[in-house]
Design a protein around this nucleic acid. Structure first.
Lengths: 367, 367
DNA sequence: CGCTTACCGGTAAGCGCTTACAGAGCCAGC
DNA sequence: GCTGGCTCTGTAAGCGCTTACCGGTAAGCG
């Protein structure tokens, strides 16, 4: 695939050993703090290491002890039509990745990052290749079928984010139900809006299904009228949200008093489309998001949304993966709590409040 | 460091070979499309590979052919005091990383990501460890001294971003001079502002020094009065920008008619601080940024700034690193063009324009 | 029909490191 | 003074893969 071979005048453990006048075994022991190298020996070795500025080769090390100290992270990006501001959509992902990194760092692991487009064909192959370079994989979103995951899972441990656990893989997600419930409660009970709409996310997303279902249940419980159906199908992107509004309006449909959006990106698109039609948020229609991405507070009006502990989600995912890697354990399904963040797009006056929405426990779904 | 050893019932090339009834050499040849395996043999092997869902171990492969197909990326994050909206500061970095990834993907490389805090102590050690796991490194920002880079560079090829090339490392950056020049020209010549200020970035950043210098030169050439000095020292963060404004105002200093900020984050802070004192942008003071991060267009007022081709910067950095890895070549210093993006914070009316600011060539600084 | 020429495919030698195993000193105790 | 028991260090056997080298077989030619 690529031709270079023995690119540099590679410095090996042998060089260090001979310079320090000891055997490679001793060098290895010193480097790993193992065994019982005498202080004097240790010093000689460290000196040589310093003088040569030697760094052991990760591949050799990995091959030898079966641990690469690398965790692969796969996520989707781009691929949709562009939309003004769309470039921010990856924020969500990046914050989670940062969390993974924080967790990884604690164990001396590094992140091997790979993104796939929505319509890349060789996804499974790419992920497999990644698996070969890592000790375990964390998969964002749902990017592989259950069988795909199963196949992967018998090569390396897998943790999925916002998916659902399978017999072979673990999962970490946020408490979508509580989030939607808090939103509906706020809109219906506190603001008194009687009609609600819900712009969905990608239909193949488990998060999306959960949220939609929670929306329907909760709205019914609160006694609000709801609008759903294919016309309300979004795809987590701003463009998707804008489309829904545009087609609804073009079809002459009357909008409900409040619209919940599957995520903040969607809300961004919806607000934008509404503004273009001269419809005021929140005076005419109240809007809410989900995620609380950093830009949410800069929108006009500032977005009322559900904050997911994204960074913590990532860190947790790593921890779980790590325990799977090292002891074969790991909680099958972990649910993290979310918070309602009230800003102005729901109709509240400037001056935000925050309400903790859910109490969480790591629950053990499978096994 | 970590105990697991031979975590899984590892599937090896031997398993595939025996299942297909051939030697491991043939399996390897088939997998790498090399040599001349006969169609029938190839098919038998592929069949076995599929049945076992075998994936060759990256470490073994790397060890054997001296190529890990991994590029390490190191950048700084956080560490500064928090500021509302600050969490977006990493956007810039992430877009560049995305660019690197795009370049890497073309060559079958993956990104090994590692971030360091501003006051982590063991930075050099961490980067060294990364170097051991990668074929080359791309360093954001300036995070190592010249000697640090030199030391690293004789372990693996190094490309720095927005730094300067050293005898041992390559560099890629944007055309800061042209950007500042375009900004000053726009403010002084087109808007007629006679007094300018410049809120700087971190003092140890080469980009910052270049921009400041260009600012002074250009403003003088345009015949504008300028304000500089320690009171104008920012640090690329929103908090830094806000501080500068606050202390200037607290000291009773009169602000210049237009303030250029070292980057968009800084501008965000400046605008925020100004708003708190009831000073209007751009009516009282015009503000410009640098970078054109995605949020720039969502600020109030939308920010006039310089767009850097961030993704392209990343892709370019990878390409250069790759050529260094594979052929030992690589351009020492590559300069990418920037564009002036006119929005409203400079005083222009809604309805933006864009002016290409510079024509670029990859120039060969050293060697 | 025998020998050359290709072409395949197998054998085995590493790649740089970790670690089990065993050898070499050394001290203490008898 | 010898031996048992420690501690420290060296030797060597892999880890899973790539690939140089070589032998075997089939096809081509005189």
């Amino acid at each position: 695939m690529a031709e270079p071979k023995k690119a540099r005048g590679t410095l090996t453990i042998y060089d260090v050993a001979s310079r320090a006048g000891v055997s490679i075994a001793s060098v290895s022991r010193v480097l790993n703090g193992l065994g019982s190298p005498r202080a004097e020996t240790r010093e000689r070795v460290m000196q040589a290491v310093r003088e040569l500025s030697f760094v052991p080769d990760g591949a050799a090390r990995a091959l030898s002890n079966g641990l690469k100290e690398v965790v692969g992270v796969v996520f989707r990006r781009g691929g949709e039509e562009l939309f003004e501001g769309e470039d921010e959509s990856f924020l969500f992902i990046d914050v989670i990745n940062r969390g993974i990194e924080v967790g990884a760092r604690r164990r001396g692991f590094d992140l091997l990052i790979s993104s796939v487009g929505f319509n890349d064909d060789n996804v499974a192959a790419r992920i497999s290749a990644l698996a070969g370079k890592a000790d375990g994989l964390i998969l964002h979103d749902r990017m592989l079928s259950a069988v795909g995951i199963a196949r992967l899972a018998d090569m390396v441990p897998i943790v999925t984010l916002a998916g659902s656990p399978t017999p072979a893989s673990l999962n970490v997600r946020c408490d979508n139900e509580s989030g939607i419930r808090a939103l509906v409660h706020h809109l219906v009970i506190e603001h008194g809006y009687r009609s609600l709409g819900y712009v969905t996310g990608r239909s193949d997303s488990p998060d999306n299904r959960t949220r939609l279902h929670a929306f329907e249940t909760e709205a019914a419980a609160a006694g609000a009228e709801i609008e759903t159906g294919p016309a309300w199908q979004g795809n987590y992107s701003a463009a998707g949200g804008a489309n829904v509004v545009a087609s609804l309006l073009d079809a002459g449909r009357k909008l409900p008093r409040a619209i919940l959006c599957a995520n903040d990106q969607t809300a961004l698109g919806v607000i934008h489309a509404l503004a273009q039609r001269g419809i005021h948020v929140p005076q005419d229609v109240a809007i809410t998001g989900f995620d609380d991405v950093p830009v949410a507070r800069h929108l006009h009006p500032p977005l009322t949304t559900i904050r997911q502990p994204m960074q913590e989600l990532g860190a947790k995912a790593f921890d779980i993966l790590y325990s799977r890697i090292s002891e074969g354990g790991g909680t099958a399904d972990t649910v993290l709590p979310v918070e309602l963040v009230v800003r102005e797009s729901c109709g509240c006056a400037p001056g935000s409040t925050r309400v903790s929405g859910t109490d969480l426990v790591a629950k053990d779904g499978h096994r």
